[in-house]
Design a protein around this nucleic acid. Structure first.
Length: 425
RNA sequence: GGAGAGGUGGCCGAGUGGUCGAAGGCGCCAGAUUGGAAUUCUGGUAUACGGUUACACCGUAUCGUGGGUUCGAAUCCCACCCUCUCCGCCA
């Protein structure tokens, strides 16, 4: 959510920034609502004040044993006009809040212009794509040849976009997660967290998935508003909701391995082959909650923490700054990590690292007590995948494949696999 | 699932219809005391929004959440959420 004060003071400036994303803010409509809200709120507060003052005098008169009938007559009609004005104000405020919840975050000035991923800007590359002396297979074929990746079984158990992994591949997948968690906790100072995989609507509103993107979520049936998490960003970031952090708790660096569930509504026909886009996948997530002045430095560090994983796995990748139109709803700036996939002869997203500045913090009511002012102030929140396990597995399969269809296990994962150095022999 | 208890400020904890944003304590901040510290004493210590883009002042809201009763609700009524205890069940 954007700062309501800023929305009042610089509506046109905000509209111009949001326009870079292709978001059209109807400034006249917003300003009109805001004006009406202001006058109505003043009126409601005046009426309340009158009621409070008179009620108080009734109390005093009664205590003094005086006759209160004339006083009661004075307040007779007050209640009705107050109730009516209050209802009007409530409706108006709900409208305003609806507009505010719909607005994406302001973009950082360093975010390049552009409508879609074609305009994303490459920041750097790491590693050289391997030179194959045979035609590299894609992970789907490799998995089938190994007999360890079964999409039909996934479809039988659940439906399209679900996968069953078995044997060495399942173990490699688990080793990958273990490795990533170890690096992030032991080397990068993140605190490991185990969280619920089901969250309520308030948590999803806090990080920005709701109310606007409910279509992308799996909602549970029943009387309660429960959802499967689309990313551990939701539970991790919301740990700070409605709270005030002490200065020595910052930066708060959290990591969690969780499954992620996404309905992928609106991506029909996209990446239907293979394990690239699934309804369920595993991820190690990184979240940082920092002082506002530290967040841009933190974004660089967090991105580096995700990069470390790909470097240790010796997977070639590049870092992209997402352009205005491709940057996510709650993010002020996002770096995507894209890993090299030999079968596609291109880089594919494997991690997304974002600085949400105070956007989520304002929605969540997440603050810290600034010693300089003594006051609670909004924190800044960041998140990034460190990294997506399913896609990392794909990248390993394709980049480490041999001509006979076996997969060499990257060196850093071997300690986790107890002698399984090649998968498929 | 059955029975019961409870949710109040950073924390603990009073408060069962009126002057309660809320006693008291702890913690914290400032000052006094001290050679310095501990102790002790004094004062101050919520957030949001609005009146004014002045931390001075004023108003409004906030005692789990949402409704209701009333001139007036932390206090009464209803629903829901959460916590705890006992029983049952269970990984």
């Amino acid at each position: 959510m954007l700062d309501p004060k800023q929305l009042r003071a610089d509506l046109d400036g905000i509209a111009a920034n949001l326009a870079r994303r292709g978001y059209r803010l109807d400034t006249a409509a917003y300003a009109g609502l805001e004006d009406r809200r202001k006058s109505l709120q003043t009126r409601v507060e005046e009426l309340r004040n009158e009621r409070n003052v008179k009620s108080k005098s009734i109390g005093k008169a009664k205590a003094a044993g005086e006759d209160i009938t004339p006083l009661l007559a004075e307040v007779e009609t007050l209640g009705d006009s107050l109730k009516q004005a209050d209802a009007e104000l409530d409706a108006l405020q709900a409208d305003l809040r609806g507009l505010q919840l719909d607005m994406p975050n302001l973009l950082h000035e360093s975010v390049p212009d552009g409508d879609d991923e074609a305009a994303n800007a490459e920041v750097r590359r790491w590693g050289e794509p391997r030179d194959f002396d045979f035609e590299p297979a894609d992970h789907t074929d490799l998995g089938a040849r190994l007999g360890m990746l079964d999409f039909e079984a996934g479809a039988k158990l659940a439906g399209a976009r679900f996968t069953v992994m078995t044997g060495g591949l399942a173990r490699l997948h688990r080793a990958l997660i273990q490795f990533m968690l170890d690096v992030q906790t032991v080397e990068h100072g993140y605190r490991e967290v185990y969280t619920p995989y089901i969250v309520n609507a308030a948590a999803l509103e806090g990080t920005g998935q709701l109310p606007k993107f409910g279509e992308d979520l799996f909602a549970l049936e029943g009387e309660r508003d429960f959802y499967l998490i689309p990313t551990a960003e939701v539970p991790l970031t919301n740990l700070t909701r409605d709270g005030i952090l002490a200065v020595d708790e910052l930066p708060l660096k959290l990591t969690a391995h969780t499954p992620c569930f996404r309905s992928e509504a609106g991506s029909h026909g996209k990446d239907t082959r293979g394990m690239i886009r699934q309804h369920q996948f595993e991820k190690v997530e990184l979240v940082q909650v920092v002082r506002p002045e530290d967040s841009w430095q933190a974004l660089e560090e967090l991105t580096g923490h995700a990069e470390t994983i790909l470097q240790r796995l010796e997977l070639p990748y590049r870092v992209m700054t997402l352009c205005a139109g491709d940057t996510g709803f709650g993010s002020a700036k996002t770096y995507d990590l894209e890993v090299w996939l030999p079968s596609e002869q291109r880089y594919r997203e494997i991690s997304s690292c974002s600085n949400c500045v105070d956007f989520q913090a304002r929605r969540m009511g997440a603050r810290w007590r600034n010693p300089a002012t003594g006051k609670p102030e909004l924190v800044h929140t960041l998140n990034g995948s460190g990294v997506a396990a399913g896609r990392a597995l794909i990248a390993i399969m394709e980049n480490y494949q041999a001509a006979n269809g076996t997969i060499e296990v990257p060196g850093v994962l071997r300690p986790y696999l107890r002698g399984l150095d090649v998968i498929g022999v």
